[in-house]
Write a protein that binds this DNA or RNA. Structure first.
Lengths: 202, 202
DNA sequence: CTCATTCTGTACCGTTTCGCATAAAATAAT
DNA sequence: ATTATTTTATGCGAAACGGTACAGAATGAG
């Protein structure tokens, strides 16, 4: 896999470190997180962080990218095409909520929507990751919608592009509302409404 | 209106100052905005800001509250009950986009969703304003949905609560996507989809 | 063993941060 | 005019900030 490098080996796992850093950014946002806080959370001193990931923005971008990639994996799994569309959508929302509702004080919502939106204006590269993440998500759902139309799970003449964006819109709303502190029940009701909106009432 | 106060009069209009401060927070977020930046933007030195509004968080909360109040005014106006529901909804989204798409570099999206979500975990009072804003918005739309059902603008048995949350979900998605840099055309298409989702295809 | 290479830890740098102390300026009350 | 009150302007100060220099430690190469 990876050739042995010369020099002193790292005493930490970069992947684990990124996960710990992500936790901090998730709760405090990019601008609200100091290198000291990151250093404490990752148990790495600042020079090590700097050497492994670059400056604070590069580290943040790394955590965003990791989240994006993981989210796409979760999405692909939830959209297992051997299941009915209705079940697929329910799984997508359910797994999103499992992530969004995890948090100490208030639910943390979506890492991207909750923190990257704030930086998107001033930091172009953050905006790019955010935009790409939303697009990728839409695209994956749209693919499933097209399949659903082929299979007759949706009415003929349905527009997969539109349906995908509406399904994503419910997702975005879950992300925001979770971070605003809405209860699990409230969010699950919205998720159910989203499923019914796309697939029709059960 | 206001009695003349003793002492040296203020050389600035608090309302105008709040608007200027809001512009800065809107682009840079709460944590990403320094008092120096605010001081420059409002042309007020820090002690004056401090004296009039309190610390940075209090100032930010004031700008959030102003935005919330203005948004509710815009919403109430857009929902003019002498117009059909379809037109009402289209006006709501259209006016939102007029606000969201205003920006120098990228579109700024919604001030609340774009900046308050990031602080909502660490700052309880921000989370409260955010939560209240979302609820108020939902409530106002739900009222209009109820009226629509009474008038027969929506099918019998429609659930106004659910419809309102779905309409809001499209709004939240517009807010996020605008900040991610989506084009006006893209956003208008989503808005149109939202109208059709609630009112049926034209 | 020796050396080059890479990572760790301490300590530091210059800047920026938020908030305030203080004094001058501007007004109303007396 | 004098006084009390409020706002403005300068500027301070302690802390936090992002980032890095440097020396020491751990490894592979020769």
């Amino acid at each position: 896999m990876s050739e042995k490098k010369r020099g002193r080996p790292r005493a930490f796992d970069a992947k684990v470190t990124l996960e710990k850093a992500r936790e901090v950014f998730w709760d405090r946002g990019f601008a609200g997180t100091s290198l000291d806080t990151l250093s404490a959370a990752t148990q790495l001193n600042r020079p090590s962080l700097y050497g492994a990931f670059g400056d604070k923005e590069a580290l943040y971008l790394d955590t965003l990218e990791g989240y994006r990639a993981e989210s796409m994996d979760v999405l692909a799994d939830a959209l297992d095409p051997s299941l009915p569309l209705r079940e697929n959508l329910a799984r997508v929302y359910q797994r999103a909520l499992a992530i969004y509702l995890h948090g100490e004080t208030a639910a943390r919502g979506c890492f991207l929507i909750g923190t990257a939106t704030a930086e998107a204006i001033q930091h172009e590269r953050v905006r790019e990751v955010l935009s790409r993440s939303l697009d990728d998500f839409d695209g994956e759902i749209e693919k499933r919608m097209k399949l659903a139309i082929e299979r007759g799970e949706l009415p003929d003449g349905s527009d997969p592009h539109t349906l995908a964006r509406l399904a994503s819109a419910v997702m975005h709303s879950l992300a925001v509302r979770a971070r605003a502190g809405d209860s699990r029940e409230t969010l699950e009701a919205l998720a159910q409404s989203g499923v019914d909106m796309i697939c029709g009432k059960a």
